[in-house]
Design a protein around this nucleic acid. Structure first.
Lengths: 110, 110
DNA sequence: TCTATAATTCAAGCCTTCTAAAAATATTAA
DNA sequence: TTAATATTTTTAGAAGGCTTGAATTATAGA
């Protein structure tokens, strides 16, 4: 993952509302949720939620699928895995021999 | 890590300048860099850099140490590891049996 | 077709962040 | 002590994000 791809993801996750939306979508898994359900579950006005869903979708963290007159949203787990890989690389840049994920976990400064 | 701890970290990483500063500090490792070196290396006015360093320090991503009249900054690798652990948990919430980090890496939707 | 429902877009006001110049603080060296 | 240097804080304006109500689009059903 490039810096220019990671940046909008961090921006998307830097709002409490959007982090809540994403975590909820992760918890419900592949079933996802339609916009109205999200609005009710998180107690966020539909118009405001739509704004944040757009930001999340633009960053690629959620996908939207038309379902009759509903719009179903799902978390993009693949992108989250890529983000974790990016952060792991950043953590170890410049000293890869000291800092496999195991070395990191063992408390070395890497 | 709690949501309220993760949020300011995402906020801190959601600026291109701050992401550059952090990645540079990761690369130079435990030696760290003083503010003036960072300003020159990244071509950012000292006053602006100081603003962003403050944000990074507030999120805990960098530490500052007085060194004579210089201020030496270092990346906080431990917090980055905690953030990676938090994201890994979020990734797997609700279906832990499907989604160890290995399962995630193998491409399962988790 | 007509009505109801789901979701988004639009528009406005408010608030926060970003950037950089100027001033202030603190340390070193002469 | 005095001057010079390193850095931060303050201050101000500019820019962009957040929130909400009203209007709009699109679909389902009578």
């Amino acid at each position: 993952m490039e810096k220019n791809a990671a940046l909008p993801i961090f921006e998307a996750l830097s709002s409490g509302i959007r982090l809540d939306v994403f975590r909820l979508l992760v918890r419900v898994g592949p079933a996802g949720m339609v916009a109205g359900e999200l609005s009710t579950a998180l107690d966020i006005p539909p118009t405001n939620l739509s704004f944040h869903l757009k930001t999340l979708a633009h960053a690629g963290l959620v996908s939207a699928e038309q379902e009759g007159r509903f719009q179903r949203y799902r978390a993009n787990m693949a992108l989250m895995r890529e983000l974790i890989a990016y952060l792991t690389e950043e953590c170890c840049a410049g000293a890869p021999e000291l800092c496999g994920i195991d070395a990191c976990a063992s408390g070395l400064n890497c």
